[in-house]
């Protein structure tokens, strides 16, 4: 019966992939990519929690009595658009960092900061 939990395992695997990229990669763009994967795993978690077996999409119509939970859909739908806006902000910061330091590698930025001190 443990197999019924597989949706959470997929989420955990994705989340840890994203987390690993964020902490292990020195490249700032790769860190953002890791964050996107992490973010998507949370989306999938919410949506899969809202899924009900044998139910249909939450749009009221004749002949359907069971609907999936609409609340996670609302939360995630807005989260996706907010997510892209904040990702864009992060990428904009990276562009400025690149212009100021000439690099987007964590080590090099740290080195330049140390020299400036």
């Amino acid at each position: 019966m443990l197999i019924g939990l597989y949706n959470y395992w997929v989420v955990v695997a994705l989340m840890m992939t994203g987390f690993y990229i964020v902490i292990a990669q020195g490249n700032l763009i790769k860190k953002i990519a890791g964050l996107i994967i992490f973010q998507t795993s949370v989306f999938i978690f919410y949506i899969s929690v809202g899924k009900v077996d044998g139910a249909t999409a939450p749009i009221v119509g004749d002949g359907f009595s069971q609907y999936s939970n609409p609340l996670p859909h609302v939360l995630i739908l807005t989260a996706i658009v907010v997510g892209i806006a904040t990702t864009a902000l992060g990428l904009a910061l990276i562009v400025r960092i690149r212009e100021a330091y000439g690099s987007i590698e964590e080590d090099e930025i740290q080195k330049k900061d140390d020299q400036a001190c």
Partner: peptide
Amino acid sequence: AMDAVDVAFTEASVGAGISTILMLTTI
């Protein structure tokens, strides 16, 4: 597949379209 058609709409245009373009531009 998860019955979340509204979410799918958003993700299709954001994930497959805009975020890819932004990433490529930054790179």
